[in-house]
Simulated assay, not measured.
Amino acid sequence: MQVTLLYVRLRAVELSNLDFNLLRTLDALLQETSVTRTAQRLNVTQPAVSAALGKLRRYFDDDLLRRCGNRYELTPLATELKVRTAIAMEGVRRVFETQSGFDPAADEREFTVLTSDYAMAVIGGALRGLTVGTAPKVSLRLEAHHAQIVEQMPDALRDVDGVIMPHGFLSNVPFVDLHADNWVCLVATSNERVGDQLTMKDLAELPWAFNYRTPAAFNPAARQLQVMGIEPHVQIVVASFLALPFVIAGTDRIALVQARVAESLVGNGDVRVLPCPFDAVPITEALWWHPIYDRDPGHAWLRNYLAAACRGLPALT
């Protein structure tokens, strides 16, 4: 225990004396795997980069870049640091982007929001108002989340402006509701085992295509079906809602999809939309963010803008 505390204290002293400008060099070195290219990227001399690499090697007690023939490759530690350094650089960028006020008509800022492809499709239709006239220097980056990120929430929220997900996955973090949606079923047009409507027997007997299937990332309606006592025979799992038509067409598989995108999916394959044979609980999509952004004026503008834009979506039928 004493050895561990001593090690932590020594590392804290080293960190306090560390030049944080090295972070920028480290990020570039891990991206470029070349002193020459790093110097060109940072617009500095090669000796300056070599000196920085020496300091980094001493600090981490690792070569970081190891010669392999006529090139360099990352050591295992450097491979791990590559991801962490990119996250740290993004965090630094966000610190210096923070302003005491925010004017979307004049200020420049990029927002990053994690979301599913389903939410991208729905939100994309609501964002027609994000124009040069309203926010000429504002850009919105919608990036796909995945099961691993969902499992790491809410820590992952520190590195982005938010995540769009339905209620039931996150708690104890701020949110604003965006829109509601219902569930329908997707089946192949050629599926002769299904008539004009699905039955609960069909749901129990037919093979399924699921989107997401982990303890932290799952389809809420499919989970509800299991609670009702029906264990779907899952034949294929895809980490996408919009890919479902391609794994259903020409098969006996069925799937649950959100009503707001169902009709657009019909054009992506030989599939049809049918009502859900059970009373699937509707979902409410929300924007969730880390509390550190609560008082950020730019972030406040973003969440208010997204909420207002989604209020313009067509009403559910």
Rank of each mutant, 00 (worst) to 15 (best):
H167K: 06
V132K: 13
F20M: 07
R9L: 06
P220N: 09
D27G: 04
T131G: 02
Q152E: 14
S34E: 02
A307H: 15
R253W: 00
V95A: 12
D296M: 05
H299A: 03
E205W: 01
A255C: 05
M165V: 12
Y305C: 04
Q148W: 08
A204L: 07
C310T: 03
R58S: 13
R66L: 14
E151N: 10
A52V: 04
R109Y: 06
T36S: 15
Y59S: 03
D19C: 10
F210H: 07
A147M: 04
E80W: 08
S139G: 06
L65E: 00
I248K: 00
A204V: 06
V227M: 15
A216V: 11
I87T: 13
Q258K: 15
V49R: 09
A255I: 03
D63Q: 09
F246A: 14
A309N: 04
R57C: 09
D202Q: 00
A204H: 08
I283V: 15
S190M: 00
L127K: 08
Q148P: 01
S34V: 02
Q258V: 11
A209Q: 10
T134S: 10
L26E: 03
F175P: 01
D27C: 05
H167T: 08
A259P: 00
F175L: 10
N268S: 15
F278D: 06
D19L: 12
R57A: 02
L140D: 13
Q46E: 14
L306K: 02
I149L: 13
G129I: 13
S100F: 03
G269W: 03
Q46P: 05
N43G: 03
T112C: 11
G162H: 06
V247I: 15
P174V: 04
S34T: 05
P76T: 07
N70Q: 13
L244S: 08
P207I: 00
F246W: 08
P207D: 01
D294M: 01
A262I: 12
D252K: 04
I230N: 02
V266M: 05
F20T: 11
A78D: 07
L287T: 11
N17L: 14
T36K: 14
L53Q: 06
E110Q: 15
Y118W: 08
D181E: 10
V271K: 02
M89R: 10
